[in-house]
Amino acid sequence: MTAAPERACQASGGVRPTGVERRLGAEELIVTKTDLQGRITYANDTFLRISALVEEETLGRPHNIIRHPQMPRGLYSCLWSTIAAGEEMFAYVKNLATDGAHYWVLAHVTPSITPDGKPCGYHSNRRSPSRSALPVVEQLYARMLRAERGLPANEAARAGVQVLEEALAEAGTTYSGWIWSLEEEGAS
């Protein structure tokens, strides 16, 4: 299933969430690749289908065309600083398809490296997250969003990061440790 081209063009800001949720199948994987600026250079069929996109309208577009308004800027700030430093990151992400549906993923984002060791882009695999983790994740993300509300973008990101760091310090863990503890709880 592909979206009409006008839907793909709306994705950068004109799409309103409908409240309809899509779910990845247990065996499905979303795969995308981007350049260093976050422009999509590859998208698999699962990504296109679940995001209601067509390949011709997707390649070359910024990956944030699927950014859901209920995702805190602070999380993306952490993500970008982590991968820009050459490290991998796992993150729970709520995305917005171009038809207004949303879907949750557990994303694994890594830098792509040339044979001579230089970063040339990013690679992300996403799978279905533990359903039992989502209420906990949504609660933390809502706290981050409240701290970010009404602030300019850079200040909002810093405020969200601060809430995230405080929550993780309270829990005595890192973001990765928190992610995996939630995934393990959901598996048991």
Rank of each mutant, 00 (worst) to 15 (best):
E27L: 12
C9D: 13
A107N: 00
Y42F: 15
T110I: 13
A153R: 15
G160I: 06
T41N: 04
Y42H: 09
V137F: 00
R61N: 03
Q162D: 14
A26G: 11
I179A: 02
E88W: 09
P152E: 12
T173Q: 12
T32F: 08
P115E: 10
G14H: 11
V137L: 07
M71N: 07
A26D: 13
S81E: 15
W80Q: 01
Q10D: 13
S112F: 11
N95H: 08
R143Y: 07
L151I: 14
A97F: 00
I30T: 04
E166V: 12
Y141G: 00
E28R: 11
G13K: 12
L53N: 02
Y122G: 09
Y122T: 11
R7S: 10
R23G: 11
L140V: 05
G13H: 11
I65Q: 00
G13F: 10
A142R: 12
A8H: 01
L59P: 10
D35L: 02
V54H: 07
F47L: 03
L106V: 02
I83T: 08
N64D: 10
H108P: 06
E170D: 15
T173P: 08
P129N: 07
A171I: 01
A156S: 14
V54L: 15
K33S: 12
G160W: 00
L106D: 00
D99G: 05
E170V: 12
A43H: 01
D116P: 01
A97M: 04
A11R: 05
G160R: 00
Y141Q: 07
E138N: 12
H102V: 02
A4R: 13
K33D: 13
R22E: 07
Y92A: 01
G74K: 04
Y122C: 08
R131D: 15
G60Y: 07
A157L: 08
G172T: 11
G38C: 02
P5N: 05
L168T: 05
L24I: 09
Q162F: 08
A8E: 04
L96F: 06
I40F: 02
Q10G: 09
G14W: 13
H123K: 10
